[in-house]
Design a protein around this nucleic acid. Structure first.
Length: 776
RNA sequence: GGGCUCGUAGUCGAGUGGUUAAGACGCUUCGUUUACACCGAAGAAAUCCGGAGUUCAAUUCUCCGCGGGCCCACCA
C-alpha cells in the first residue's frame, strides 16, 4: 500500500478492473431484490440531485447483494418529451418531415445518454448495464401501447371533450410544463348585469368572453348577494345566466361576483365542471372569437376594445381599475395561452379516488410522511388524466376512430407497436364512416408509469412482480408514484412494489433551490473530479436523515475524506502484520469484538430501514473512536513488546475487515483497494458480516469503559501538566468500588502497557479515581 | 392561498415524555507519540423559534402564531 491515500488512482484502477459480472442479475426468481430504479430524462448532465437519488439506490443494492440477494438494479431512459423536440428544432429548424424529425430526436437522445452514463460509472453505481432499457425502443413502446389498450378494454380510457392549454400562434395543444408565466398589468372592468332586483356589477379582465358567459358565481356567505343565489342575471348582451354559490369566490376581489366563461381561465374550468355548466366555445384554434354576432371573427384584443367602447356609450361600463395579473405564455413563441375545448384521450381517475387511496396504504413509505403527500393529492383530484399530446416525439396512442360516429377501433395486439398516423386502417366502420388513425402521442408519464412491469417481463408470466423497491424523488410522488401505483394495479391486480423510498431535493448550501443564476449551483462533475466518488457518495448518506431536503455542503465531503484517510492509515498499520487467526481471551480484545458485533447489528438494521445516515455515522464513530482512538492505542504496546501479540493482530484484522465490509456500500473504491490486499475475491462479492450475539460480552464492555476512563484520566493529567503522553509513570493508584477494582485487576497488564506505568495500586473507594505519581 | 415538512451551540445537524441533549465543522489550550497533523488529548459554547394547553414531568405530544424549504393553486 502506498503511504498516502491516492483516491484518484484507486478509482481509476477499479473502474477499469471490476468485471461487469459483479452486478449481474441472475433472475433466479428466488431471494430476489428487484429495484424499480427511475429512468431519468436524458439531458446530458448527471447533476447533484441525481447523485443523491442514485446513491440512495446503490447503498441498498450493494447491501442486499452482500446479503445474498439476487439484486436487479436496472437502468432505463425516459426519452420522449418536449425538451428534446426543442433542442432538435433549434439545431435543424422547424420544417423537417415528421419521420425525419423523429430520427433526429433519437440521435440527440443517444448522444446525451452516453455522457450521463460515463458519470454514473465513475460514481460506481452497481447497475446491471445488460438490463438497460429505453422508452424509444420498439419493445418498450409495444408494452406501453399494450398497457393503454388493456386499460381501454377495462373501460378506463375514453375519448372526450375537454379544455386544454392551447397556443393560438402555434395552433397546438401544449403541456403545462411548456408554459412560462409573466406578470403584467391589465384593466379590471366593472360591467353592469341586470337582475330582478336591480343592477349587478361584475368585474372582469376579459369582457371579450362575455358571449360565453354561462353563470355568475358568488360566495355562499356573502351578505351582498345571498338573496340572489338561485336567481337569474342578464348579461349586457341580453343573455340569461344562473347565479350560483361557490366558496372559491373571493368576496373582497372586484365586486365579489364573478362571471364564468368557457374558458377565460382555469378557475372557469373548475366551476363549469363542479356545477355542470354548459360550454360555449368562445374562441377558435386561430385565436379569433367565434359564436358571437357582435365580435365574431375578431381577435380577442379587437373584440375587447369594441365591446368596451359600446358599453361605455350605453353607460354599462361603471369603472376600470388597474390590476396585476399573471399570464401564462408559451415558452417557445412567448404568446399568451388560451384554454380551448378539444377532443382528447383520458384515463379515468375521479371515480377511482377511493380505491387509489387504498392502494397507497398497501405500500411501505420511507419516510412514512410521504404517504400523506400521496393521500392528499389523491383526495384533491378533480379531473381525469388527459393522456394525449399533439406532439411528435412520443409513443403514438394506439387508437383508430370513426370520423362519423366516433366509434373507437383498436389495432391488433400483434401489430404493436404501431403508429396509427402512418398505418391506415383497412376497412370501414360498421356505420359506413371513414376510420381515422389517431395522430396524438402519449403523455410521457404513460411511458414511465409501467416501469415495474417492463423490468419484470410483463405481460409474460413472471415471479419477479411485485418488485421489492421503488426509489424516487419527493417531487414526483404526484406523478410517477401515483400513476405507477394506479396503472400497474389495474393491469395486474396488485400494487407494483413493496417499499417506496423517497429522497428529498438537493438545495444549495444556502438552503435555496440550486440554480445557475443564483450562483449556488454545484456541478457534480467538479466534485467528483476534486474529491472522488467515495467522498461524494458519503455526502449523500451524511447530509441528513432519509427523505429530507439536503443542502449541499462541502464540509460533509471534506469530513468524508478525512474519514477515508483515517481508514487508509489505520489499515496500513494493521496490514503491516500478516493476518493470522487466533481466538483471544484478552478482555480488551473481547471488548472491541463486542463493539464490532453491536455495530454490525445496528448498521444492518439501519440500512434495512433505509436509514443511511444512521448507518454511516455508526460505522464512522465506531471505527474512528472505538477502533482507532482507543483500541489501536490499547494494543500498540502488545505489538511492540510481543505480549499476546498474535491475539492482538488477529483481532485487529478481524475488526478492520468486517468494518470495511460495512463501509463497502458507501465507499466501494477505498474498501475494495484495502480488502484486495488480503483477498482475491471482490469485497462486493463477499458476504455481509453476521452479528454474533454470543460475542457481545457485557462484562468486557463494562471493564473497557472503566479501563478507558482511567486512560482518559491519566491523559488528562498529562495534558494539564504539559507532559508528553509517552512519558513513563512510576506508580498509578486507582481507587474505586470493589467490583470495578476487581474487574480492572484483570486488565492490569494492559493498563500498565497503555499508561506506561511501572506499578499499579488498587484501593477500594466510592468513586473511580486515579492518583498519579511520576517519579518515586 | 392550500398541503407537507423543518425550526436544537457561531455554522450544519442526530435524537428523546423523565439522569450530564449525540456528532461534525469552526474556536481555545496542550502535545511532533515508531498508522495518520487530512492527527491526538483536553476545553468553552444550546432559555432545544415564541405563546398557550395536556401531564407529576414537555425540547419531545396538541393547538395558535412567527420564520425557512418543497409541491400545488394563483385569482375572475
Amino acid at each position: 500500500m502506498s503511504s498516502k491515500l491516492d483516491f484518484k488512482a484507486i478509482q481509476a484502477k477499479w473502474v477499469e478492473k471490476w468485471p461487469k459480472s459483479l452486478y449481474t442479475y441472475k433472475a433466479s426468481g428466488e431471494n430476489e431484490f428487484v429495484i424499480d430504479s427511475p429512468p431519468p430524462f436524458p439531458t446530458g448532465e448527471f447533476h447533484i440531485g441525481h447523485v443523491l437519488g442514485w446513491c440512495y439506490i446503490d447503498f441498498i443494492a450493494r447491501f442486499k447483494r452482500m446479503n445474498g440477494f439476487d439484486v436487479l438494479f436496472p437502468q432505463g431512459w425516459d426519452c420522449h418529451g418536449f425538451p428534446t423536440e426543442v433542442k432538435v428544432e433549434k439545431k435543424y429548424g422547424k420544417n423537417l418531415p415528421r419521420d425525419e424529425f423523429y430520427k433526429k430526436c433519437l440521435e440527440h437522445t443517444h448522444e446525451v445518454v452516453a455522457s450521463m452514463k460515463t458519470q454514473m460509472k465513475d460514481l460506481a453505481l452497481s447497475i446491471d448495464w445488460d438490463r438497460e432499457y429505453y422508452t424509444i425502443n420498439d419493445s418498450y413502446k409495444q408494452k406501453v401501447q399494450l398497457s393503454v389498450l388493456k386499460m381501454f378494454e377495462k373501460g378506463l380510457v375514453y375519448r372526450g371533450t375537454s379544455p386544454v392549454l392551447w397556443c393560438t400562434y402555434c395552433r397546438s395543444a401544449i403541456a403545462k410544463a411548456e408554459t412560462e408565466e409573466v406578470n403584467q398589468e391589465t384593466k379590471l372592468n366593472y360591467i353592469t348585469f341586470k337582475t330582478s332586483s336591480g343592477n349587478l356589477s361584475i368585474a372582469t379582465t376579459r369582457p371579450e368572453y362575455l358571449h360565453a358567459c354561462v353563470a355568475i358565481v358568488v360566495h355562499p356567505t356573502d351578505e351582498k348577494f345571498k338573496n340572489l343565489i338561485g336567481e337569474k342575471a342578464t348579461t349586457p348582451l341580453g343573455k340569461e345566466v344562473p347565479i350560483i354559490a361557490d366558496q372559491d369566490v373571493d368576496k373582497e376581489f372586484g365586486s365579489g361576483a364573478v362571471m364564468v366563461c368557457s374558458f377565460g381561465d382555469k378557475q372557469d374550468v373548475v366551476w363549469i365542471n363542479r356545477h355542470n355548466l354548459p360550454v360555449i366555445q368562445a374562441m377558435g384554434e386561430d385565436g379569433k372569437i367565434i359564436n358571437s354576432e357582435k365580435v365574431g371573427g375578431l381577435y380577442a384584443k379587437e373584440a375587447r376594445a369594441k365591446l368596451l367602447e359600446e358599453f361605455q356609450e350605453k353607460g354599462l361600463l361603471e369603472k376600470q381599475e388597474t390590476t396585476k395579473q399573471v399570464v401564462k405564455i408559451h415558452d417557445r413563441c412567448k404568446k399568451p395561452i388560451e384554454l380551448l375545448e378539444s377532443k382528447q384521450w383520458f384515463i379515468r381517475l375521479k371515480e377511482n379516488k377511493d380505491s387509489i387511496k387504498k392502494l397507497g396504504n398497501q405500500v411501505y413509505w420511507y419516510p412514512s410522511y410521504y404517504h400523506q403527500t400521496f393521500d392528499d393529492w389523491t383526495t384533491g383530484l378533480e379531473w381525469d388524466w388527459c393522456i394525449s399530446r399533439q406532439r411528435i416525439f412520443g409513443i403514438p396512442l394506439p387508437f383508430y376512430y370513426c370520423e362519423k360516429c366516433d366509434e373507437v377501433i383498436l389495432p391488433k395486439e400483434k401489430d404493436l407497436p404501431i403508429d396509427p398516423a402512418l398505418k391506415e386502417y383497412e376497412g370501414n366502420c360498421s356505420c359506413g364512416g371513414k376510420i381515422i388513425g389517431e395522430t396524438s402521442v402519449c403523455d410521457g408519464w404513460i411511458d414511465s408509469s409501467i416501469t415495474p412491469l417492463v423490468i419484470t417481463n410483463w405481460p409474460n408470466e413472471t415471479k419477479h412482480y411485485p418488485v421489492a423497491l421503488r426509489p424516487q424523488g419527493s417531487d414526483i410522488i404526484r406523478t410517477w408514484a401515483f400513476y405507477t401505483i394506479y396503472r400497474c394495479n389495474e393491469l395486474t391486480g396488485s400494487t407494483p412494489f413493496k417499499d417506496i423510498l423517497v429522497n428529498g431535493m438537493v438545495t444549495g448550501s444556502d438552503g435555496k433551490k440550486m440554480s445557475k443564476s443564483l450562483g449556488n449551483y454545484v456541478e457534480a462533475k467538479d466534485v467528483l473530479q476534486q474529491y472522488g466518488a467515495d467522498a461524494l457518495r458519503q455526502w449523500a448518506a451524511l447530509s441528513g436523515s432519509t427523505g429530507k431536503d439536503n443542502a449541499f455542503r462541502m464540509q460533509d465531503i471534506q469530513y468524508a475524506q478525512s474519514f477515508m484517510n483515517k481508514v487508509w492509515n489505520a489499515s496500513k498499520f494493521v496490514l503491516q502484520n500478516e493476518k493470522i487467526e487466533k481466538e483471544s481471551t484478552n478482555l480488551i480484545d473481547k471488548w472491541i469484538i463486542s463493539r464490532l458485533n453491536q455495530t454490525i447489528n445496528n448498521v444492518s438494521k439501519a440500512i434495512n430501514e433505509y436509514d443511511y445516515y444512521g448507518a454511516l455515522t455508526e460505522i464512522q464513530s465506531f471505527f474512528w473512536h472505538d477502533y482507532c482512538d482507543y483500541y489501536l492505542e490499547d494494543v500498540k504496546y502488545r505489538i511492540y513488546e510481543g505480549t499476546q501479540k498474535e491475539e492482538a493482530i488477529s483481532t485487529l484484522h478481524e475488526v478492520l475487515e468486517k468494518t470495511l465490509q460495512l463501509l463497502a456500500p458507501f465507499a466501494p473504491f477505498l474498501t475494495e483497494e484495502i480488502y484486495s490486499q488480503t483477498h482475491d475475491e471482490s469485497i462486493h462479492e463477499s458476504k455481509w458480516p453476521e452479528t454474533r450475539e454470543a460475542k457481545i460480552d457485557e462484562i468486557a464492555i463494562q471493564i473497557a469503559s472503566d479501563f478507558h476512563s482511567i486512560v482518559s484520566q491519566v491523559r488528562q493529567f498529562k495534558t494539564k501538566n504539559n507532559i508528553s503522553l509517552a512519558t513513563e509513570i512510576s506508580r498509578v493508584e486507582i481507587t474505586g468500588p470493589q467490583q470495578n477494582i476487581l474487574n480492572l485487576a484483570d486488565v492490569e497488564k494492559d493498563l500498565k502497557g497503555v499508561l506506561k506505568a511501572k506499578t499499579i495500586v488498587f484501593n477500594e473507594g466510592s468513586e473511580l479515581t486515579t492518583a498519579i505519581h511520576l517519579n518515586e
